[in-house]
Amino acid sequence: MHRFANPAQFNRLADVILPWAIGAMVLLFGAGLYYAFWASPPDYQQGESVRVMYIHVPAAWLAMFTYMVTAAASFTALVWRHPLALLAGKAAAPAGAVFTALALLTGMLWGKPMWGTFWVWDGRLTSVLVLFFLYLGYMALWQAIDDEEKAGRAASILALVGVVNIPIIKFSVDWWSTLHQPASVIRLDGPTIDGSMLTPLLLMAGAYQAYFVVVFLWRMKLEINRRKLSVARQAMMHAPVGAE
C-alpha cells in the first residue's frame, strides 16, 4: 500500500501506464465511433436516435464509477491518512463532474424526441442531478477551505456521505415508477439489448474508461506538483529572516 505513497514512485508508474492508456483510448474511440455510426442498425422503435445511447450510457456509467473512485480514495484518506489517496479523490472529481453533466445533457437531447420532454423529475433523473451537485460540492469544499488538510477532510466526508446516492441511482428505476426505462445491460436475466447494439455500447464504454484513466493520471501528476509547490511556498514563508 505504502509503496504508492511515494509521489516519485507514483509518477514513474503513471508514466509507464499513460502511453498504453492513450493508445487504448484512441483505438477504442475509433472502433466505438465506427460501430456507433456505421456498423450498427437503427432501433426497431427509436430509429436513428438510438445512437445517442452510445455516448449517454458510457457517460452515466463513468459518472458512477468515478464517484466510487472518489469515495474509495476519501475512505483511504480518512482512515489511513494516506496523502496520495487524498489527491486521488481531488484528481478524479472533475472528470466525474464532466461525465455526469454529459449524461444529463445527452439524456435531455435523447429524451426530447423520444419521450417528448427534455426533463421530468423522476427518481432516475433527479438522483443523477444530485450526483452532479455532490461533485460540485466536493470540489467547492477543496476550494473554499484554505488549510489543505482540513479541506481534504471535509471534502472526503462529503464524498462518503454521498455514497448512499449510488444505489439510489442504480435502483431508482426498480423501486419507483419513473419515465426512464429500467436497466438494459446490467440486469439479472441478461442484457435486453441486441448484440449488434451491445458491441458499440461496450466499445464506447471502454473508450470512456480509458479516457478516465488518462485524465486521472494527468491530474494526479498535476496535484502532486501543486502539493510540491505549496510545500515549497510554506518552507519559504517559514524560513528565518536573513537566511538569504
Binding site: 426497431y44 427509436q46 441486441d194
Partner: peptide
C-alpha cells in the same frame, strides 16, 4: 394535458421482436 412516451429496456434492429 401532457402525454410522454416511456420506452422499455429492449433495443433491437428493425423487423425483429423482443
Amino acid at each position: 394535458s401532457t402525454v410522454l412516451a416511456k420506452h422499455d429496456e429492449n433495443y433491437r434492429p428493425p423487423g425483429t421482436m423482443p
